[in-house]
């Protein structure tokens, strides 16, 4: 997999510091599963965070802090955290972790919501205020031309799309904001499946699409 488009450095910093919301972190983490280069950057940032913590002046702990902790560990002994079992999906594995655990299955088996115009979506539950969704755009079909009221990131999982800024294939990560007006088209050979995260509804240029937008929840 050759990845040409990566999260910005400031987004990786937000991911490492913990400041990035869950929906966005899901997109970054799923990109990281596919991208050794960005994992390397993240490892360096974590080393920096570890260095800051390690260089901090030691605070005074509460009395008996260690004894309380040890008593707790002894009373809970051998409830050791086991490695999470790899989810045993019946279907084939075609989505990487951590995304797969969030949507719970292979692409074919998901309860897609058909939105017309060759677009299907699946909303992904997350605890932050932003919206994460899987989008499946039929081969050769456009996603209606839109700008964004806020930020949008898109991680391609299968197939590819193309817009005025370039071609995005599996593993590629696109960042867009209100300054970007784009009309992505899925490439002709295959449906394009993406993880898209937005912090505000998309703003469509086409009036007809804008009228139906409240009903289809994009």
């Amino acid at each position: 997999m050759s990845i040409d488009h990566h999260p910005s450095e400031e987004r990786l910093l937000d991911y490492v510091s913990g400041g990035l919301g869950e929906s966005w972190s899901l997109a970054v983490a799923t990109h990281l599963a596919l991208c050794p280069k960005c994992r390397n950057t993240v490892a360096r940032l974590e080393a920096m965070g570890g260095g800051m913590m390690d260089a901090a002046e030691p605070a005074t702990l509460a009395d008996n802090s260690f004894d309380a902790l040890w008593a707790r560990l002894e009373s809970e002994e051998d409830e050791a955290d086991s490695m999470p079992a790899i989810a045993g999906h019946a279907g084939k594995i075609d989505l990487p972790e951590p995304l797969r655990s969030y949507v719970g299955g292979s692409v074919d088996a998901l309860p897609w919501q058909n939105m017309g115009l060759g677009v299907r979506q699946l909303l992904i539950p997350t605890a932050d205020q932003s919206t994460a969704r899987l989008l499946c755009v039929a081969a050769g079909r456009p996603v209606p031309e839109h700008t964004h009221r806020g930020e949008e990131v898109t991680l391609v999982l299968q197939g590819a799309f193309r817009d005025s800024t370039g071609i995005y294939a599996a593993g590629d990560f696109q960042e867009a904001d209100e300054t970007v007006l784009h009309q992505p088209h899925a490439e002709k050979d295959r449906d394009c499946i993406c993880l898209a995260v937005t912090d505000a509804p998309l703003k469509f240029r086409n009036l007809a699409f804008r009228l139906v937008q409240p009903f289809i929840g994009i």
Binding site: G18, G21, E22, S25, L26, A29, T30, L32, A33, R39, P84, I86, P96, E97, P98, L99, Y102, T126, A127, D128
Partner: peptide, 8 residues
């Protein structure tokens, strides 16, 4: 009260 997803 959020999870922080990580690669596996």
């Amino acid at each position: 009260k959020e999870k922080r997803p990580q690669p596996d």
